[in-house]
Amino acid sequence: MPTTNLEPYLAKHSFFSGLDPADIEEIAGCAKNAAFKAGEYLFKQGENAEFFFVLREGHVVVEVPTARGHSIEISSLGENQILGWSWLMPPYKYQFDCRALKQTKVLEIDGRCLRGKCESNPRLGYELIKRFARVMTNRLQETRLQLLDLYGAPADRS
């Protein structure tokens, strides 16, 4: 029996699917819904990484602020994607800025709360580490492809 209305959503989400209902309940206990307007920041570089996010609706961009005052966009994420892993590892600081490009609805999951639960429930911790490792591997591969210049002519790539 779900204790919050977030549990059915989490159980169906591909990132969490296959987790024990008890684990889903633990995660849901650290989660709440939030919304960001277009242009609003979900987080900024250097801030304490208090949350990770499940994007329910909308579109966000991850960017690096530059000394010249503007930002360089490095990737964008949309519906159903998982955002943020800095909550998982010291120094628990966000490495980039993240801004909503349009009205964006998220599930905000409190990292400190979940870390505490993982310490006392290592099985849940291991499951989450495996899942985040997959997200990180995918992002690393995407970044490598971005460096490759997939679309250029062979001559442009040298």
Partner: peptide, 23 residues
Amino acid sequence: VSVDRATERWRGHVGVVTPYVRN
């Protein structure tokens, strides 16, 4: 529509197109 290197005025997706296939 996604680009590898965005400019300041770009409001679309950023990143190679293939991971979007995954989603």
